[in-house]
Every structure is written in C-alpha cells, then in structure tokens.
Amino acid sequence: MPDNRPTVLLTRPQAQAERFAQALGDIPVVISPLMRIEQQPLDVELTGYRGLVFTSENGVWACPQCALPAFCVGDRTAQAAKDAGMRAVSAKGSADDLVRIIADRAVEGPLLHIRGEHTRGDVAGKLRALGLRVDEVVGYRQVARPLSEQARKLLGGESIVILPLFSPRTARLFVADVGRIGARVRVVAISEAVKEALSGSVFDDITVSTTPDAKGMIAAIQGRIDA
C-alpha cells in the first residue's frame, strides 16, 4: 500500500538533519540542507580566558581541545563540549537562557564566544551589557545552498509537507528559494523569532514548539502529522 503520511522536509545542515531524521523514527523524510557548515581556522589563543560560550555544537567543533568551563545553549552542544574535555553547563533553552545562567552564576570573565558567521540572540552583546568582558570569534561559516530537486518536487506536489525550521535565517533562505508550491505546508518553528521571519510570506500554517530544542520540535512535528 502507498504511504500517504505527511513527509517531513529537513533543511538543517546535513549532519544535524541526518541525526534529527533518525530521532523521528519511521516518519518519511526528505533532507535538503539550506546551509553548509564550513569550519574556520581559529586565530585566537585560549590562554587567559576563564570560560567559553557556545550557541552551537559547530562552535565546539571549531575549538581546540581544552578543559575550560563551557557555557552552552542546549544539551546537544553541552555534550559535544564534554566530549571535547570541557566542563560543560547547558542552559537547556535559548540564547536568552544562556545569558541568564551565566549571569546567575556570577561567572567572571574574560569569556570567549565561538560562534558562526551568522548569529542570533546577540549573546556576547547582552553579556557585555551586564558588565562581563566577552570576546567573539567566528569558528564556522553557514554557506547558503539551494533546495534540492527532490525537495522542489515534493513541494510542487499535492501532499502534506511538515517543514521544521530551526533558525530565522533558514526560514528566510527557504522563503527566498522555494518557488512554486502545490503541497500543503505545515511549518513547525523552533521559536517565535523563526515564526516572525516568515511574516509576509505565503506560509501561515505555523506551529511554534513549546520548547526550543529537539524534544519540543519532535513533539510538535508529531502533533502536525496526527492533525
């Protein structure tokens, strides 16, 4: 019998998309990354810093192995930091949650935020506004990629497509590149900021995850499949 279930279109970078697809189980998935991660050589000496700040595991992978404290936006990033020998703490949430745990713990700087070329949340800026010394360095680039022909065919059809979006930039890239749409697209946004990035587009069937993490996104996706 044909599989008439909705298909999930994953636009995350390849490694993260493959991992997320595994977590979804037997739900039909098409992977079409809208960004490619390119690690950048770090032109920085870690000596003198009292902690590192990470808003993505990509930042961890760009960092030399060390035993510094690492303040991480979520559990996945924290686990990557632990695997690299760091003493990691997870904010279990958003960029604002990360700023909050650093402030609540009265962390002393200087700190170093290893981030992507495109970033959101202005973590370093908000920490500096609280009086902390925080430097920033770009550890990776997020290079835009077009949708694959498989993704375009899926979106041009007449089936139901669940579209999880994990960042405002990905949402904007998708809107700019999508072209003709025949499918019924149900968007699952990881945050209100992602939903806002879709403002003015044709996409108005949007569910925002109750928590800004993989667990919340999977639950929201399942809810849209069962709707």
Rank of each mutant, 00 (worst) to 15 (best):
Q222Y: 00
L112F: 04
E136F: 01
I101S: 07
E117N: 15
L130E: 06
V99W: 06
A220Q: 01
E108T: 07
D205I: 04
F203N: 08
R128Y: 01
F166H: 11
V178M: 09
Q150P: 00
T207L: 12
L130V: 01
R100F: 00
I181N: 11
L198F: 09
E108I: 04
P212M: 11
A176T: 01
M217L: 13
R115S: 12
T207I: 07
V138E: 13
L111N: 02
D135P: 02
I114P: 10
D205S: 12
G179S: 09
L173F: 12
A151W: 06
D97F: 05
I181L: 12
L155A: 03
T170A: 15
Q150R: 14
E117F: 00
L154K: 11
L130Y: 01
T207C: 12
T170K: 04
L155D: 03
F203R: 11
R115G: 07
I218P: 02
H118Q: 13
H118K: 13
L198C: 05
V107K: 03
L173W: 10
L173K: 09
V188K: 03
A189Q: 07
Y140F: 14
E158I: 00
A171N: 09
R100D: 12
G182A: 10
I206M: 07
G156F: 06
H118R: 12
A129Q: 14
E196N: 09
S167A: 14
A189E: 06
V188M: 05
R145Q: 15
R169H: 13
L130N: 02
V107L: 01
G121P: 09
S159K: 12
G200H: 12
S148V: 09
G131S: 05
R152Y: 01
D122S: 12
D204S: 15
A103D: 07
V134R: 03
E117S: 15
Q150S: 14
Q142E: 14
G125N: 10
I114S: 10
I181Q: 09
V185W: 02
I101Q: 08
G182I: 07
T210A: 14
A183E: 03
